[in-house]
Design a protein around this nucleic acid. Sequence first.
DNA 1: TTATAAAATTACGTATACATTAAAAAATTA
DNA 2: TAATTTTTTAATGTATACGTAATTTTATAA
Lengths: 234, 234
Amino acid sequence: MTVSEKSFDTASKTSKSKSNTHQALEILRNMILSNELASGSNHLEKELASLLGMSRTPVREATLILEAQGLVEVKPRHGVRILSLSSKDMAEIYEILTELESLSAELAANKDLPDDEFLIAEKAIRDMDQALKNEDREAWAEADEIFHSELVRLGGNKRIADVIDKYNDQVRRVRYLTLNLRPTPTQSNEDHRNVLTAIREGKATTARKLHTAHRIQAKTMLLALLDKYGFHNI
Amino acid sequence: MTVSEKSFDTASKTSKSKSNTHQALEILRNMILSNELASGSNHLEKELASLLGMSRTPVREATLILEAQGLVEVKPRHGVRILSLSSKDMAEIYEILTELESLSAELAANKDLPDDEFLIAEKAIRDMDQALKNEDREAWAEADEIFHSELVRLGGNKRIADVIDKYNDQVRRVRYLTLNLRPTPTQSNEDHRNVLTAIREGKATTARKLHTAHRIQAKTMLLALLDKYGFHNI
DNA sequence: TTATAAAATTACGTATACATTAAAAAATTA
DNA sequence: TAATTTTTTAATGTATACGTAATTTTATAA
């Protein structure tokens, strides 16, 4: 590794230099999630290759992986299409997230976990409180995501985490867009606290029901917002 | 297209000629599900390329997609490893299948579906009865799979179907292996009938609970079999 | 022999060449 | 003009070449 490569590598992210394919995957994924590559837009392989400064081969491989992950659709001669989501798509995804997170809450409650397993979730709750006080919605959203992913981690099923990560990727854009349109998430903080308490107390059914209610509420709110602001494909 | 190519194409499957990448994907997937490519085995790109009669490029693309689908792991310089499953993996997967199929049963029950929507599921139930009489377990398994996928279809959430298809692919091998080791699935047929009745009558909670119980029973039985016969990685 | 170092091998990652064929543009005809 | 055909363009799918680096083999030293 040359010095310049090394410094670039350090500057970027991890210390191990990944293949161009995996770099392309990571960069494109980030550009999609941040809407730098707008949903609904099409991009030819050549365009992406020159954007990323590499040949078509690794770009092509990255787009095939992104397609398998549900973020794009590869349409020969029309380029790679960044997938957009309808309200129906959102509803489908939220149905899955609700179900698998709620199951995770139940599983976690049945485990009699030691106190130190809850540290991150508790911090996330505190951060959400603080973020509400500061009226900092980005900080709130970040802590909210940490709380939800902790819930899944505590459930202990890695594949549930995989599925949820995949669908969270697909809706992150939408969630971000509505972050400042939605009402203050005061109730959410209360909900989270109650779910975590139920888990700590081993009340599996309660934990599950509380979390399901929490998620259904979030879904209803989001779909109403999309409708209200006329976002039909996002 | 030459005459020989055309006849090969006709003989093979669909009439539209797919790309080599997608052919490779389909063939490799089938070879994995049927255990022709044994779980745990490793295969170099070159080997697969000559097996499939194409260059490394489309084979490589296919393996990257298979990796994203969770069937293989690409390990540079060690080849593509066909993933095997531990009991823990099986338990994780069954947890997801149980949850999402049960949710589908609930959703279907809430839909007040017309009678003709149940034709395929009903036929599957009859076929399972017949297969039991004939002591034909392969026929039973086929009808069983149709019933389960119908349940998900009736629920109406396409993404649930995607997730379930993905994990069914991963456990199909195991299910097939234990097909003739398990007790006669008499109770299963009864369970299916009850779930379908509950759905038709709009009893969502009942449908859900019945199906969950059915699935948990199947999971317990399968894990016990794996343990009894010493299948720790399959 | 066992451990280490040097050399050889080879699988992979990537760029590139090129045939194919869909799409677009131009030309022709009605 | 509108419809059809022909020509051109260019995006893709695939094979191949080749540098790189991991692995294996061989050689050397302890």
